[in-house]
């Protein structure tokens, strides 16, 4: 876990990291270039036209169009960014997602200061959730009578996903707006109560990555963290069997069977 972070961007652990990192690096390179050139010109002007004896200012008239040339280049650069980079990638990341049958679908119910994940379990169907069943032992209000829910696996603050297969998170919230943010996956999406918003990502690196909340959600907003474990397919099957073996009660801190290279379950 420690190895993932440094001063620059965290380690790239999902298919989104490529385009997003490219965009950030490209824009920052352009910003540095613009700023350096601009600063040199600025310093030159300050030195060249500072007040000196015997030389007064000349109010010669210059057509302002000349000054708009640098602005024109900035505009061309921005239009290129929009057309070739932003719109296609935005479509790929936020609008066009994988179809549910080829991806792992997980339900996420965010609440004040915890992430509740619900996996469909072997039958592939999610149990119904209802507000009246919510109590401390059953945070997401899983309907006990619903047969589809019998084998559902629910975990708190732990997301287990297999490598090599995209994951779709159908996210909703019980109380206020939260925001699912995993720096390594470069994913972030606000979770609005009363709306079902889905988010997808495809991990490319096994390991343990941190889930954070990016939208102020109350007093313990900074405590609202979780772990996203990316297992190799075989480990994932082992984890699934281990989970369905136990009763579908919430498994708060299950033994991480995966090769979590993190030192401690933080």
């Amino acid at each position: 876990m420690k190895g993932n972070y440094g001063w620059g961007l965290p380690v790239a652990a999902s298919t989104f990291a490529g385009p997003i990192d490219f965009g950030i690096k490209l824009i920052h390179a352009a910003m540095f270039a613009i700023f350096i050139l601009w600063a040199i010109f600025f310093a030159y002007l300050l030195l060249r036209y500072r007040r000196r004896e015997g030389r007064s200012a000349q109010a010669g008239y210059e057509s302002p169009l000349k000054s708009l040339i640098p602005d024109f280049f900035v505009l061309v650069f921005e239009i290129a960014l929009i057309v070739f980079y932003a719109i296609p990638n935005w479509h790929r990341i936020k609008i066009a997602g994988p179809s549910p049958d080829t991806a792992l679908v997980v339900e996420l119910v965010a609440e004040q200061f915890a992430w509740n994940f619900q996996y469909p379990g072997p039958d592939g169907k999610f149990g119904r959730r209802d507000v009246q069943f919510i109590e401390p032992a059953n945070p997401i209000g899983l309907d006990p009578q619903d047969p589809a829910g019998k084998d559902d696996i629910t975990t708190v603050n732990e997301l287990h996903v297999p490598l090599g297969k995209p994951t779709i998170l159908n996210m909703s919230s019980k109380d206020v707006i939260h925001s699912f943010f995993v720096p390594e996956f470069r994913v972030k999406q606000d979770i609005v109560p009363g709306m079902k918003i889905s988010l997808w990502f495809e991990p490319t690196l096994a390991g343990r990555f941190e889930i954070g909340c990016a939208q102020l959600c109350g007093v313990a907003h900074s405590m609202m963290r979780g772990d996203a474990y990316v297992h190799t397919p075989s480990e994932y099957e082992a984890w699934l069997k281990a989970q369905s073996g136990q009763a579908p009660a919430t498994t708060a801190a299950n033994a991480a069977t995966g090769n979590s290279n993190g030192s401690s379950t933080f």
Partner: peptide, 14 residues
């Protein structure tokens, strides 16, 4: 977009 994503807690389309 709002009406399409509007759901009750149990997830049915409200």
């Amino acid at each position: 977009a709002i009406s399409e994503q509007q759901v009750t807690y149990s997830g049915e389309k409200a």
